[in-house]
């Protein structure tokens, strides 16, 4: 059991980690849809953003994915909306007219409104991110970002990792024993390096969910910078070689313009 806890501590949920902005698009070998439209059907989101163009783009992207987006342009309006209606997630711009984004979050947290909050900001410094998360934000995304990155972060916040206490994870033909630190595919033991094991564990805790390269670097490697080369892709490629079987479709799909997804 002690071993189990250690592993759990190693893998932080995205809610409390720092995220570098990601707008790197890389070569994709498949073009699956970023998120299943059915899954997000009608989930109500509140977007508080004063820049009309940016608000429209974000809203259009999220509406395309099936979310129901309400836009507010100022801090007080956003606060009023968040108080009066039940939203599943708030997306709040860091700098807002009248009431600052961070102040808005602090007020909500004081009033015990604990909806997950994604902070979107043009301020990229590490200190700003720490401030954003300290104020009660659950994730911090720096502008400019790829829409795929935004969608993945929203999805991650809405679908918190599955039960953290279970010591066996099962996704499709894969079975991971967190105590034995072993992975089997259809009862065949796979030989994984520690880093590959961690990477696969992160994906298995989020089956069917898109994870971006930035999310993987931050959460699996704990780095807050983005290397210039396709490092993450190489690691995923190596992992794929070990878990896939010739003839059957790859278990880890590439999501165009976003990242990767473990087929549920």
């Amino acid at each position: 059991m002690k071993l189990d806890q250690e592993i759990l501590q190693d893998i932080e949920p995205p809610a409390h980690s720092m995220h570098a902005s990601s707008f790197q698009s890389q070569e994709e070998d498949s073009s699956a849809l970023p998120t299943s439209r059915q899954a997000s059907k009608g989930i109500p989101l509140l977007l508080v953003e004063d820049e009309a163009g940016m608000a429209a783009e974000i809203a259009a992207e999220l509406s395309d994915l099936g979310y129901q987006v309400q836009i507010e342009r100022t801090g007080p309006a956003g606060l009023a909306a968040a108080r009066s209606q039940a939203f599943s997630l708030l997306i709040i711009d860091r700098m807002l007219p009248e009431t600052d984004g961070l102040t808005l979050i602090e007020i909500l947290r004081q009033e015990n409104i604990l909806i997950p909050v994604l902070v979107v900001s043009a301020l990229s410094s590490v200190d700003e991110k720490i401030r954003g998360l300290k104020a009660g934000g659950d994730d911090y995304l720096t502008k400019p970002f790829a829409m795929g990155e935004l969608a993945a972060r929203v999805e991650a916040l809405l679908r918190r990792p599955a039960d953290l206490r279970s010591s066996i994870l099962r996704v499709g033909p894969l079975e991971m024993d967190l105590i034995e630190r072993s992975v089997r595919r259809d009862n065949r033991l796979l030989d994984l390096l520690p880093r590959e094991f961690k990477l696969l564990e992160y994906l298995m805790r989020r089956p069917g969910q898109t994870v971006t390269r930035a999310m993987l670097l931050e959460d699996v490697w704990n780095y807050n910078f983005l290397p210039q080369t396709n490092l993450v892709d190489v690691h995923i490629g190596k992992l794929r070689k070990k878990i896939d079987q010739p003839g059957s479709p790859p278990l880890i799909e590439s999501v165009r313009g976003a990242g990767f997804r473990l087929r549920a």
């Binding site: 707008f23 790197q24 590490v126 720096t142």
Partner: peptide, 20 residues
């Protein structure tokens, strides 16, 4: 074109980080 744009944005981000 998106890839080129990302490269340009990456340059700006890196410059900002360096001055930070």
């Amino acid at each position: 074109a998106l890839r080129d744009l990302d490269r340009a944005l990456m340059t700006i981000t890196t410059l900002l980080r360096m001055s930070e």
